[in-house]
Design a protein around this nucleic acid. Structure first.
Lengths: 328, 328
DNA sequence: CTGAAAGCGCTTACAG
DNA sequence: CTGAAAGCGCTTACAG
């Protein structure tokens, strides 16, 4: 089925059919004839041909750091629900935490005119990233990181971790922290800083701080290190639920009880946090909603040519569970 | 940058440039000139125009039931690694466990000529699915389910669960099973049947069998039901690790110890299985490898026009951990 | 309100 | 080995 066949069957020119499909500047009578033929034949216009002619792909590129991650999964679910409803298709690019691959995808997307817009789930934002953002001739929205001059949807990492620390370390004598590399500004730098500041407010200057990766193993090994070097530790605040799950596993093996001997907290409110024993005190982040928000921003920029940069900081919710005791 | 500009700069016709880019039937001298110009300009051919002309998109559609799932994540990681290396792009379609959406995506992909091939991560395969498979004019590979007459990569669910049951229920007096809906042939029907057969071999006819969904909550509620109605139960075999995690959570709340009072097993060897307390005895499935395998099959069909249907059954590995005691 | 015509960027017989 | 020409399926000024 092509537009020519439809035109012939409806007894009009293909220009008229095209107009019917687009601006709709067609007489009622012909509209009816065309509508009927399209309904009968089930004709669907070729997106490729449209793209070639108009330069619009109706694709949105979504660059993600990792595919098998609950966090990313929730964010992408939010994104696709909005994009699908607005008739955009999602082109997923997985970088497996490779910063260079990230920049390469961003470049490829725009140089090859493959997409009308881009959403980047950010982790480490380098100068190379910033340079590409400037070159980009399609709208971009960054998720999870605050980037100056670029539309973004991110989380209140500082305050979330500050609250979490107060909740985990209050009444304790030796709080410690397990975070991730500082190059990740949101999950690394900000959360660590928030812990240090909150610990200071509780009277703990120079607390133990370790840094690892975003996974269970990191929690296991660093908790081992901390308890070996600082056996007096009685509270371990973690940058993520996964790390916290690893910490609990290690403490259990060392014969220490949570929360009696050591308080533990995570962040993210993943499924993990609810399943491990003891259940983790954590912060709930609205991952799916942040995806919805980011996609809405992008669609608006796409449809209305509204290029105004906007920044949205998402709220959060403290979730108290078994890994900390409420009575200090 | 278009092919015309390259042709002009190299002093040849655009047909020659095109040949250089494709079959390569070009004199050495012109090859050099064209190569140089392309290198200098960074020219990349428009995939849209190529598609319009050749009918090939270099897209592969991947239909998945759920985005935030570790299993699906691992499978997709395997798929994209192969596809990317073969210069195919992945178009992900998420159905959120909606069978109709699944069929609709399959149809849309082929009717609209959006993709050169399709990989479906199967759950419930209906007659509507089978009908679409027949209509499809592009190669398809189904993952996770065995479908007659269609290329597929699936798991040995029956034997995996049979072994798991022997391992969990041997020496026990009252084994029970928590599975999922039978309409999922692999994860529902086959695993349940394997449990029943293995239980029978151990001398337990008519054991307790419950059915729920693929999640932690199902494990929690059905374990509650089983222990209420059959307090003598001393082994619970589960269709997935998530369900098993829920079961352990419930048993803990009921004051029952795992494995002393009740043995528990999951299936899949997810991260969850290693993190919960006690760690779960389970079966390791090679999810990522199955994705690699499926993508290889598809690429071969695409490149060599090799339409021969192939079926690959993946092996598995029993993983013994704390939730069952090895001494029967 | 409508149709003829040009053109988006490519590939591929065809004739040489 | 190479170029002129046609055409993939659409959209959009343009003239009417």
């Amino acid at each position: 089925m092509t537009i020519n066949e439809i035109a012939q069957l409806a007894g009009v020119s293909r220009a008229t059919v095209s107009r019917y499909l687009n601006d709709g500047y067609v007489s009622e009578e012909k509209k009816k004839r065309i509508a009927k033929v399209i309904a009968q034949t089930g004709y669907v216009p070729s997106q490729q041909a449209r793209t070639l002619r108009t330069g619009k792909t109706r694709f949105v590129g979504v660059v993600i750091p990792k595919i098998s991650s609950e966090t990313v999964g929730r964010e992408v679910a939010g994104i696709t629900s909005v994009l699908g409803a607005s008739d955009y298709r999602t082109l997923l690019a997985n970088t497996d935490n490779d910063e260079n691959a990230e920049v390469a995808y961003l470049k490829a997307f725009h140089e090859q005119g493959q997409v009308d817009g881009i959403i980047l789930i950010g982790t480490v934002v380098t100068d190379a990233h910033r340079r590409v953002f400037e070159e980009l001739n399609v709208p971009v929205v960054v998720m999870g990181q605050h980037v100056e001059g670029v539309s973004c949807v991110y989380f209140d990492d500082y305050n979330a971790m500050y609250d979490l620390t107060l909740c985990c370390a209050t009444g304790r004598t030796h709080p410690a922290y397990i975070g991730v590399y500082e190059r990740d500004f949101a999950a690394g730098h900000l959360r660590t800083q928030a812990f240090i500041d909150a610990a200071a407010q509780l009277g703990h200057t120079d607390p133990v701080v370790e840094r690892g990766l975003f996974n269970v193993e990191s929690g296991v090994s660093l908790a081992g290190k901390i308890m070996r070097e600082h056996p007096e530790t009685d509270a371990i605040v973690c940058a993520t639920d996964e790390i916290a799950a690893g910490v609990c596993k290690q403490l259990d093996q060392l014969g220490l009880r949570v929360p009696e001997d050591v308080h533990v907290t995570g962040l993210g409110d993943s499924m993990l946090a609810q399943v491990v024993k003891p259940q983790l005190t954590t912060v709930h982040y609205y991952y799916r909603t942040s995806g919805v928000e980011a996609a809405r921003m992008l669609v608006e920029a796409l449809e209305q040519g509204n290029a105004a940069v906007r920044e949205t900081k998402m709220g959060y919710k403290l979730v108290l569970r078994e890994s900390t005791s409420s009575d200090a």
